[in-house]
């Protein structure tokens, strides 16, 4: 177990916890930005360089800039303490969250080394990937050969989303 991954996981978990309880939306947005950057670091540490770069550029770059920009545009200040007015719902939510995390953690720890997972191994071993010219090259080749229809459809969906966002956000001309 690599110590860098442990540190990245701990920082990421702390930032996510802070995000849940922060009062102002800008604190939460910056904590989410930290979580996304730490996740990009984890991707890089396990050898997924392409996904780490995309995570940094698209998630931590574009999406978070959009969030912080709209927080500044709407001029959101600190909200009043949201957890005080309904303590019953808060306690219920914490119990629900703990039970969801407990079930997921039990499933991961208990079933991770079962032989059914170990049997279905793919062909892209680390040796083959380094022989083929690295992670980015293999992933890009798969993206533009095996999955090219999905790639084109995704680009069309992105175009429709951009046009829809502009139509929704523009002021009505009366």
């Amino acid at each position: 177990m690599s110590p860098v991954i442990i540190i990245l996981c701990l920082i990421s978990a702390c930032l996510a916890f802070t995000m849940l309880f922060a009062k102002s939306p800008i604190t939460s947005a910056l904590c989410l930005l930290g979580v996304l950057i730490m996740t990009a670091g984890i991707y890089g540490m396990i050898g997924e360089h392409m996904i780490a770069t995309i995570q940094l550029v698209v998630y931590a770059g574009a999406i978070m800039v959009l969030f912080i920009f709209s927080i500044m545009l709407l001029n959101l200040g600190e909200s009043e303490n949201e957890f005080k007015d309904k303590p019953g719902i808060f306690v219920l939510g914490i119990i629900l969250g703990l039970s969801v995390f407990g079930l997921l953690a039990y499933a991961i720890v208990h079933y991770f080394n079962q032989p059914t997972i170990a049997k279905k191994m793919g062909q892209f071993t680390p040796e083959l990937i380094s022989q083929l010219g690295g992670n980015s090259k293999v992933l890009s080749h798969a993206l533009f050969s095996q999955f090219y229809v999905s790639f084109e459809v995704i680009s069309l969906a992105l175009l429709v989303a951009v046009v829809g966002a502009v139509v929704l956000a523009k002021r009505k001309i009366d």
Binding site: S12, A13, A16, M19, L20, V35, F101, L104
Partner: peptide
């Protein structure tokens, strides 16, 4: 995977 479960819960 445990970190992913924690982030999902949060």
């Amino acid at each position: 995977q445990l970190l992913a479960a924690f982030l999902f819960t949060t």
